[in-house]
Computed example of a mutant assay.
Amino acid sequence: MFASRSEEYYENTYGYCVTNRGVERGHRLPQVLLLGDELVVSVLRREGSPWSLRFEGEDLCLYHEGRFSQVVGLPEALPFFGKELSDGVLTDDVISAYGAVTPGFFLYPDCHYFDRGAQCRFCSLRAARSTVAKPLVKDFPRQRIMEATRHIQNSGWRVPMITNTTGTPLDDEGVRRTVLEPLRAIHDACDPKIKMHLLTHPPQDLGLIEEYKRAGVTSIAFNIEIYDRDLFASICPGKDRLYGYDKWWDALDAAREVFGDYQVYCGIIWGLEPLASSMEGMEAILDRRIGLATNVFHADPGTAMARRPQPSVADITALAEREAELYRKYPDAGTIYDVSMRNTIDWEVRNGYMG
C-alpha cells in the first residue's frame, strides 16, 4: 500500500528493532502516524489487529474494527536524508531518528550479550541488523559522523537535541573506541552547540561517565528496563549476570553526581512486570532525583517475547495515572524530550493530560 505511493515521508529504517512482522524496507512503512494535537504513535504491523489503514484519495484513514476513526498524517520527510557523504555513504544509512522529529545516531549497533545467549528477551537489535536494517552502517569514523551532523544542523529543521543510542560493546575500551570517539566528533561538528542525549549501557569503570560529559553529552540514560529484581534476572540475564542489578543503581547515582538532578534518566518498560512493581519502580527512580523514562512494551518479531501479549489499555491507563501523581510529587522531574514520542506517553502525562 505504501510502496505504491509517490509522496515522501519519514519511513521506518529499523535502526535497532524489527517492530513490524513480514515487512521489507521497500514496503515504505512510516515509523509513526500523526494523530493531531501534536500526538504521534508508532506503527506496528500485526496480523489480527483491530486497527487498519487505507488510503482514500489523498487521505490516509484509520479504522477500528472496520469503523472509520480518523484521518491521520504521515511524518514529514527528513530533510537531512538523501544526502551523499564524501565516502559515498548516504545519510539515510548513517542518521537515525527517534519518533517524528528527533535525529541522532545509533552507535555500535550490536550487543555482546547475544554472543553469550544472554540478551534481553525483548530485544530485536541483532535480528533487525541482520535483516531489514542490513543496509545501515555499523562504523562511525570521525569524518563520516561530522559530515552527517552538519547535514542535520544545516537542514533548516529546528533540532533542539541530538539523541544517541548505543548497543553494548564488550568492555570499556570498546566503548571509548566505538561510542566515545563518535560522540566527540558530533560535539565538535555542532555549530552552534546543542544538547546531546545518550542512552547507553552503564560502564564497568564509572569514571567513564565523566568522560561522556567532557565529550559534550548533556544528559544520559541507563535503562534498567525491569524494576523487580527477580524478573530483571530472567528477562535481562546478561545485564543481571555480567553487570548486576545493584551496580546498575550505583551507576545511576554516580551519573547523577556528574550530570545533576534529573539530568540522568532510567527507563522501565510497562507491561513486563506487575503493575505494583512498575509503580514502585517509577517512584524509586524519581525519589533518587533521577528522571523517569517509560516505554510501552511491544512484542517484536524474532525475540523470545514475540508472542507475549502487549499491555492492556486499562493497565497503561493505571500506570499513566500513577505517573501523573508522581510528577506532581516530584515537580522538578521532566522528560527527555519536549515532544510527543512514539512508544511512550511520558510527555503527555507530564503535561497533565491524565488529570
Rank of each mutant, 00 (worst) to 15 (best):
N20E: 01
V43D: 00
L78T: 14
P30C: 01
V23C: 08
R54P: 03
G26S: 15
L29Q: 01
D93Y: 12
Y10I: 03
T13P: 09
N20S: 10
F68G: 11
D92E: 11
N12C: 12
L35P: 11
V18S: 03
L53G: 06
L74V: 05
D87P: 03
R67I: 05
L53K: 08
L39I: 02
H27G: 03
L39T: 06
V23I: 13
R21I: 00
L74C: 08
L44Q: 10
R54E: 14
W51S: 04
A77R: 15
W51F: 14
R25T: 05
G57T: 14
V18I: 11
G15I: 07
Y16H: 15
N12T: 07
D37S: 13
S49W: 02
M1E: 01
S96N: 11
S6G: 00
I95Y: 11
E56Q: 02
N12V: 01
V40Q: 01
T91K: 13
D92T: 09
R21N: 07
F81C: 14
G88N: 10
Q70Y: 06
L29E: 00
Q70C: 12
S42D: 01
L60M: 06
L33F: 10
E24D: 10
N12A: 15
M1G: 02
Y16I: 07
L90D: 14
L62T: 09
F2Q: 01
G82K: 14
Y9H: 05
T19C: 04
Y10C: 11
E76Q: 13
R28D: 00
E76T: 11
H64M: 06
E11C: 08
R21D: 04
R28L: 02
S96R: 08
D59S: 13
E38H: 13
D92Q: 07
P79R: 15
V32I: 09
G48H: 04
G26L: 06
W51K: 02
Y10A: 14
F81G: 10
V40E: 00
V71Q: 12
E56V: 00
P75S: 00
P30T: 02
G73N: 01
L39F: 04
P30M: 04
V89Y: 10
E65W: 05
L74K: 05
G88M: 12
V23E: 09
D87Y: 04
T91D: 14
K83D: 03
F2H: 00
L35R: 04
E38F: 09
R67H: 11
E65N: 12
G57C: 10
P50H: 11
V72A: 04
R45F: 02
L53F: 09
G22L: 04
F80L: 12
V43I: 08
H27N: 07
Y16S: 13
R67E: 15
C61T: 07
T19M: 05
D37K: 14
R21C: 03
H27R: 01
Y10M: 13
T91I: 13
S52Q: 09
L35A: 01
G15Y: 10
P50V: 09
G88D: 09
T13D: 12
L60K: 08
L29Y: 08
G66D: 05
E38A: 11
R21L: 05
C17R: 08
Y63R: 07
P50S: 11
Y14T: 03
R5E: 06
L53E: 08
L39Q: 07
V40C: 01
C17K: 05
S4L: 09
F55L: 01
H64E: 10
Y63M: 07
G36Q: 10
F81H: 15
R67M: 10
V40G: 02
K83S: 07
L33M: 02
R46N: 05
R28C: 00
H64R: 13
